[in-house]
């Protein structure tokens, strides 16, 4: 690989305010990460691979999707690297470039969320985001087959009994058009 290609990823990150070249591999990020048990690459390796320009591996990894954005890594990095921000940048690139996402559930939930805000004219309807998410890729049917839906319906019923399930949609904003413009991609 030409040297310039190897550095392109780190440079693109730096241009987005996410410089990674300060990393000296202390692994404080990975040691504090609450979800490292579910990751295929610990956060310090994500930063290392970013420095090495190994973009394809990063866009296809599980880590960026199981990251909960708790910001512990970013808070603790002694070199000021916004590690959680790097995870976000990689997620956005993975979706924009149509990479194979190993955690489609997380991706689809985020897409359903943004779609629901746009549809409702600026605010989120919680039932709508759940409905849009469930409908994606026949997820609802798969769940019914696994009978995982029963527990979720039971929780929904408990919330309904406590008047915590909104039965009317949120107010459509005067600025709905402006918000739809911001969310035009979704």
């Amino acid at each position: 690989m030409a040297q310039s290609a190897a550095f392109a990823l780190a440079e693109n990150l730096a241009a987005a305010g996410l410089a990674v070249d300060g990393c000296y591999q202390c692994r404080k990020c990975s040691n504090g990460c609450p979800l490292v048990f579910a990751m295929d690459l610990p956060p310090d390796r994500v930063i290392r691979l970013a420095l090495l320009g190994r973009e394809d591996e990063l866009l296809a990894c599980r880590t960026i999707w199981v990251c909960s954005s708790c910001e512990t890594c970013t808070t603790r990095c002694p070199n000021g690297i916004d590690i959680a921000g790097v995870m976000d940048w990689l997620k956005e690139q993975a979706v924009a470039r149509g990479a194979a996402v190993p955690e489609p559930e997380v991706r689809d939930f985020h897409c359903a969320f943004l779609g629901a805000v746009k549809l409702m004219g600026g605010r989120l309807s919680e039932p709508l985001v759940l409905a849009l998410y469930a409908l994606k890729g026949g997820r609802w049917l798969a769940k019914l087959r696994r009978s995982a839906a029963a527990g979720e319906l039971a929780t929904a019923l408990e919330l309904l009994k406590r008047r915590r399930l909104p039965l009317s949609p949120p107010r459509r904003l005067a600025g709905a058009g402006e918000v739809a413009g911001i969310l035009r991609r979704w």
Partner: peptide, 16 residues
């Protein structure tokens, strides 16, 4: 006329 802040969904998939 406040709008949704975008939450995790926006910062995960759409920095702008």
């Amino acid at each position: 006329d406040w709008n949704c802040c975008g939450a995790s969904a926006a910062h995960s998939l759409d920095a702008e």
